[in-house]
Design a protein around this nucleic acid. Structure first.
Lengths: 238, 238
DNA sequence: CGCAAACTTGATGTTGCTCAAGCTAGGTGG
DNA sequence: CCACCTAGCTTGAGCAACATCAAGTTTGCG
């Protein structure tokens, strides 16, 4: 309907499929659609920078985003990867507290923050949905704190692979998962270096827990062993 | 020690001073007070365990809580310290995702979750307040991810001291901050060992950035230097 | 005053980082 | 269509930061 399309024309999108709309009535969904605009960004583009004024809320419609924070000397921590259905910018801070970049080509749905906040106050059930989403992010962040503070390199990589597998809602055996982010991104997400991530993946391959068929794809051969490894169980000499 | 107290029987607590009430009208505050119960816990007591069913929301009224997660082999990550005014248990998960323990003697205000959720849906502005609080937790968690993933031991300890100082809303010079948690807790919060925390504190003392007058108290002598250190600036040979 | 728990300090060990060098895949231009 | 070229990936050797192990030392409490 009133959805503004910026900057590239984006073909038919089913607005009622947007995550923010799920479970809401037709009228509420219409309210939301009325304040959206769609954007398409190429892989590698920056959506916003840490420190910039934040007047929008984004929903990822398609593709994958990477969020990160920097130290003055350039050390980087990736705080999360967002795939379709995730919201970013819910915090009522005045400025962004991380930088967001597109890993793949990305389609975003943008809401003006002020309008979004009005919805929170007026649409029944909407606040609960947003609160649930934020709480889930917080829970994930706490799991990541355990990983970063206390897990070994092998445990971190195993945890990451399982997280990716789960996100892609796979069955259990012989999952082939898509890994759109580069080794550098994985390393900065896990608090390791590229080299350590590579070496660990190679080891996992050698032990036949995974396969590395092509760039951007990893096959999980032994889900159970990865789980055991991820939570600090058996070591496999890793 | 499990002093379960009916609200009205505890005259000394000013309910309208509870964090959840701030900014709400008299009627809303009355609604909230009607669903509370007060608890007092001794230092060292566990409030709830990771994995236990979570049917409550707690507000810390007095004292300090410690939240942590465990790996099967006992490695521990402290995910946060909560002092007066903080809420815990907002996530709509069925079970607790961390363990909460009292560091000092603690006074808690307990809300039944179902009643709390009804407030979210019915009291104007309440959902926003809760969402704001949760978003803030998330922001803090992301800062901690940067710390755990990318900062050196000295940077972590400096960051921690500044965080404590800020929480106690001090002025800038010669702050004496209260550090109720033990070295072990600090270590598990920062992803270090007790020994490393001790050594680093000793070094900071040697360089006259801090003083260690008594247990449970630290004096910040050079706030600026600590800030520089915390964000990876100058090294001070640390 | 004595005791246990927490803290501090020292000596040694190991994980993951740094630096350095190939390797591979995918994209580009001839 | 193929050769080249570059960015990203992989592997290796040596090293440093922090962990581990092992004593002391202090503190607070009974």
């Amino acid at each position: 309907m009133l959805a503004h399309v910026v900057p590239n024309a984006v073909p038919k999108v089913d607005f009622s499929a947007l995550a923010v709309c799920r479970g809401l009535g037709r009228e509420a969904a219409t309210n939301i659609m009325a304040i959206t605009s769609l954007q398409k960004r190429a892989a590698g583009e920056t959506i916003f920078w840490e420190g910039d004024p934040a007047d929008s809320v984004f929903e990822v419609v398609k593709g994958t985003l990477r969020l990160h924070k920097l130290l003055p000397d350039g050390r980087r921590q990736v705080t999360g990867f967002l795939c379709a259905g995730h919201l970013v910018g819910l915090a009522p801070e005045g400025t962004w507290v991380y930088t967001a970049e597109a890993i793949t080509e990305v389609t975003l749905c943008r809401y003006r923050r002020s309008a979004f906040e009005r919805l929170i106050d007026t649409v029944p059930g909407f606040a609960r949905r947003v609160l649930t989403a934020t709480s889930h992010e917080l829970r994930v962040a706490q799991d990541q704190m355990l990983l970063l503070g206390r897990k070994t390199a092998a445990e971190r990589v195993a945890s990451f692979l399982l997280l990716m597998a789960e996100q892609q809602g796979g069955g259990d055996d012989a999952e082939s998962i898509s890994v759109p982010m580069g080794r550098n991104d994985i390393a900065d997400y896990l608090g390791l270096t590229v080299e350590t991530v590579c070496r660990t993946l190679t080891q996992l391959k050698r032990h036949e827990l995974i396969e590395l068929p092509t760039h951007g794809r990893i096959v999980i051969r032994d889900h159970d062993a990865l789980e055991a490894l991820a939570s600090g169980g058996i070591g496999f000499g890793l």
